[in-house]
Amino acid sequence: MKKLLTSVSLLAFLAIAISFSACKGKLKDADIKTAVEAALKADPMAAGSMVEVKDGIATLTGECKDDMCKNLCAEIAGKIKGVKSVVNNCTIAPPPAAPVINPEDEVLTKALTDALKDHSGMGFAVKDGKIVLTGEIAKAKWAMLKQTLDKLKSKGYDLTGLTIK
């Protein structure tokens, strides 16, 4: 019985000793986090990502511009000492909308001629891609005409000379 107690206490001692020495070699989560953050900041492509570290597991969040950037962030974090694994929760930013293609002034003028054929009493011109309208028009007709003109994708309007009746 005594022998058993001795071996149990010996085992307990050993276990405590091992865990202590393990603690010494283990990096703190906060230190790992600082190191990962510094590494991410150092790369302009990965600079938009943020990291949280718990029990050596690094979780990445934030917005990346594409898959390549997302993978790069994980790679950078994975190389840091003390990081056991990486959870990559970075999102990919949606692609920017394509720009509006404005027609040439000449094309716009022709389209305007078509649209305004039946609106006598109105003057029109195209200036730097903008539609310039002058004269008078009834509200109901204008509401209809504006819908048609908006299909022409001009660079906007100059309507200071237009009166709505």
Binding site: I131, W142, K146
Partner: peptide, 11 residues
């Protein structure tokens, strides 16, 4: 009102 600002193109 009356779409007169000319700063919106809605298609």
């Amino acid at each position: 009102p009356n779409f007169l600002s000319g700063d919106l193109v809605m298609n």
